[in-house]
Design a protein around this nucleic acid. Structure first.
Lengths: 339, 339
DNA sequence: ATTAGCACTCGAAAGAGTTGAGTGCTAACA
DNA sequence: TGTTAGCACTCAACTCTTTCGAGTGCTAAT
């Protein structure tokens, strides 16, 4: 459908625009080494590319900038995977070779390295609760009337929640109860915990061990209203460096979406396995429609347990960013597998 | 030193400027109910106030804006404490009446309510380590080779850290070790932990229980490199709403300071007991010299254990903000005391 | 001591002119 | 027939001027 020459021109324009954020004119294109024809020819081709919807003008006599359709075509057909630069390679290796043994540490480091290397905003959705299972429940008494319940998952994640112990609860009952819970719930996926606690155990405990029923009622409250916040964001201020966000209003609306953890988590959660790119209007959130979002997933035992993403202007360095995300999601997957 | 009339004019100008962020002219001042004299008189007084350094002009024929000296005088002499508005009152009561039992919850809620009510950025330094003591150490095995060490403080704070268990370590030794540690270290202030671990125990363990020495060597590593991050920030994007920060460069430099948790923590840590106000250049960080920082401290057992702060433009609503901080720090102190 | 009056200042907004990087179109060329 | 040189045209960005008005300081009158 597009001639080789048109593809070449489209590629040059997008590559150049990604670097400069400025409209590209025919003369500038003709100066490129790989371009052997004159500005006039280029102008004709550009006019055609514009008619086809791949390019846009900012005003009637301006150079061209890529349209969203242009980016989409570029990403789908023109992008060739590049190897990571030695520097990127080294930085990432450095992070993953330091022998991290904690989930949050891996994620936190990944968020940091991503935003530092790219100057975009990186967002990582932590391991999904349905892939992690309960390792142990512990109760630790802080005082006569307060205690903290600690929940450890197989991924090394620790959730805790303090609660007050009503007078009518016997500390021994509480201990007994925790033992029962551990017996029955260890290995259960976190996501099933509320249900399991609610239905299965309530009846069992009512039957077998009447005396801990009251204790259970209180402990359940403490265990249930966990809402694990597993969204990690890095390099938010990087957006301020992008010329497309020199407008405070834009920044503000974008930040307000990122701040809505629930919304962002849902967006990342709904991503398919592998690498996925949303350009501009392809994003559902209107506030993100000046941006591109590139996501990759990482897995544990073949099951997708989380998503890493980069948010930047539409003129992102797609090929580099894709390589980075690919490398990072693999490294994460590998790291988790080794545990 | 200043006449009543001058004080009145200074007060009107600052009050007005706090609302509008626009220079105030003599005519506008004369329209105020409490002002009974003519613009010409006001102009004379304003010229005097400017000579004394309390007011500034943005250009030679503009109205006046308060200088930093002006704000300082206002804060020191003109501010009268006001009662919280019913709405503020209600919002804060709502937060503190919900029976929170967890340290982090209290702080997180306080940060949120502060930034929501004020539209400034709120920063809270969590309870200082020297005021919190160790409640318990726990080791939970995740797999044959990995475990997570959990550290609970008397404030209900939980720190955790995964580590891998080298082959040469006997799990039983590890357990024995944890028991020993708990026996000896419970009640020790967190800040002394590294020292205690390092010096006192190393020798004791070497003496008494040779077999756990190796285990200790590894566990120590896991316990020592905790750096509790106890800085909570809310409403960072609020700064974008202030007209004095319509410039992206300013925002960026300000954000970069706030992001340096260590720096911010040190600033908050060095605050005196009670409410303290730093206006503009009074702030040490150059990036914050367009801002005012108002801090209040909260206590546990009479000892100052943390700081809450509001960061905003120099034309902050000082009286309201002070009332809010005062109320909030009291509520926090009270809440912690009740536990 | 206060104020009315007036000349003066200066930023902000609006308009005019200039520049230059870009275009589209036409006609000549290989 | 595809390519290119040439040229008129467009428009944002910049600069320069003008106008406007909200403000001032100063002086003289009350």
């Amino acid at each position: 459908m597009l001639s080789t020459r048109q593809l070449l021109i489209l590629q040059v324009i997008i590559d150049e625009f990604i670097q400069t954020a400025q409209p590209i004119g025919s003369r500038a294109i003709s100066k490129k080494d790989e371009i052997t024809f004159s500005p006039a020819t280029i102008r004709n081709e550009m006019a055609d590319l514009e008619d086809l919807g791949f390019l846009e003008k900012t005003h009637s006599s301006s150079g061209r900038i890529p349209s969203e359709k242009g980016y989409r075509y570029y990403v789908d057909h023109l992008l060739m995977p590049i190897d990571l630069s030695p520097r990127d390679e080294q930085t990432i290796s450095g992070v993953f070779n330091q022998g991290m043994v904690e989930f949050e540490q891996v994620i936190q480091n990944s968020v940091n390295v991503l935003s530092e290397l790219t100057n975009y905003t990186s967002i990582i959705l932590g391991p999904e609760v349905y892939a992690t299972t309960l390792k142990q429940i512990q109760i630790i008494h802080l005082s006569k009337t307060t205690a903290v319940a600690i929940l450890v998952t197989n991924t090394g994640h620790v959730e805790h929640r303090s609660f007050s112990i009503p007078k009518e609860i016997n500390p021994l009952d509480l201990e007994k109860l925790v033992n029962i819970l551990n017996e029955r719930l260890v290995g259960v996926p976190i996501i099933q915990l509320p249900k399991r606690l609610q239905i299965e155990l309530t009846s069992i405990i009512d039957h077998y061990v009447k005396d801990v029923a009251t204790a259970f009622k209180y402990l359940k409250g403490a265990l249930l209203d966990q809402q694990p916040n597993n969204l990690y964001v890095g390099g938010i201020t990087n957006m301020l460096l992008q010329p497309e966000f020199s407008d405070v209003a834009k920044i503000h609306s974008l930040y307000s979406v990122i701040e809505q953890e629930e919304t962002m988590a849902n967006i990342l959660r709904s991503q398919d396995q592998g690498i996925h790119i949303s350009i501009g209007q392809e994003n559902k959130m209107t506030e993100m429609q000046d941006c591109s979002l590139i996501t990759a997933t990482y897995t544990l035992k073949g099951q997708q347990i989380g998503t890493i993403a980069l948010l930047g202007p539409k003129r992102m360095e797609y090929s580099r960013v894709i390589s980075l995300l690919d490398r990072l999601s693999n490294d994460m997957t590998k790291t988790f597998k080794n545990w």
